[in-house]
Nucleic acid binder design. Structure first.
Lengths: 153, 153
DNA sequence: TGCAATTGGTTTCATTTGTAACTATAACGA
DNA sequence: TCGTTATAGTTACAAATGAAACCAATTGCA
């Protein structure tokens, strides 16, 4: 039997995972790194959380959504959306009215202040995305698109 | 000027992000979905959090690491590692001793109980990874590896 | 109608997480 | 050798998150 040293690579009989080659782990690191880099840009400038920004981003694209529809499109749960909206409305960044034909539903739109923030943050976010993609050549970028399409389908 | 309807796709002058084509967003969805699927497997069976599992996984590969080294290898911060270790040690899944030459450092190893859990969870995690990769053909898998290598470099 | 079931959304409470401060040991330099 | 600085790890407190209970409006249907 061999001597055991500090941080011995563990024994074959246990078949430990190699995190550095394990897809879920690598994706998690990559995703967190990128999201955090973008968040760093706007959190200090606008006192905006990631969930709030996501809500604003979908309201920028689809005006008049209800909270539930925002939740669908952001893949966030409705409690998180409700809380983000409470802060956004309180900060005057989102206007909330009641739906004409269904008083349970809210009708959500960015306010002028909300649009101003959006128009500041969206280009920064896009620039960060470009920075990431700049590490790849055109062929790799195409494959990445295709692969993500398949994995997310 | 055109009529405005419910959830109008917002105006060109604001150039809103299209989340469904925005890389950081798509990566986040993919990563969370995969990690959660794996976590569902072991959380109920072993009452194990994601952070605890990550700590166990690196200790399976590198026996005798210190808490700081675990933090490095898991890309978690030291507080998260400290808390995960507190639970793992309390549950008898990790053995913690003090380093001979530096009394600040801990020396961490999976216990027999820890190895038993590892040997149950690791194959499940690998199986889930295979399920994900099964959505891709061999060529796509090679590109994905290459792309992740570049983006994580 | 009228009443049960559903839906949109909020609140409450427990747990998790992040940040900063803290303790203890070790390393470094005058 | 003493005092300063750095490092390993934990603790304390605040903020974020998740699950379940909850309220109000709507729908479905006997």
């Amino acid at each position: 039997m061999s001597l055991r040293h500090k941080s011995t690579p563990a024994r074959a009989e246990h078949a430990p995972l190699q995190l550095e080659h394990f897809l879920p782990y690598r994706l998690s690191i990559l995703s967190n790194t990128i999201s955090q880099t973008i968040a760093d840009d706007y959190q200090s400038r606008h006192d905006l959380s990631v969930t709030e920004w996501r809500v604003m981003a979908v309201l920028a694209r689809f005006e008049g959504l209800s909270a539930r529809e925002v939740a669908e499109r952001t893949a966030m749960d409705k409690v998180a959306v409700s809380r983000a909206l409470a802060r956004l409305v309180a900060a005057g960044r989102v206007d909330r009215t009641v739906h004409d034909n269904d008083k349970r539903r809210s009708v959500l739109k960015l306010s002028a202040a909300g649009w101003a923030i959006h128009d500041d943050v969206a280009p920064m976010a896009r620039a960060r995305e470009r920075e990431v993609l700049a590490k790849l050549d055109a062929e790799e970028r195409q494959w990445l698109e295709r692969i993500l399409d398949k994995l997310l389908a």
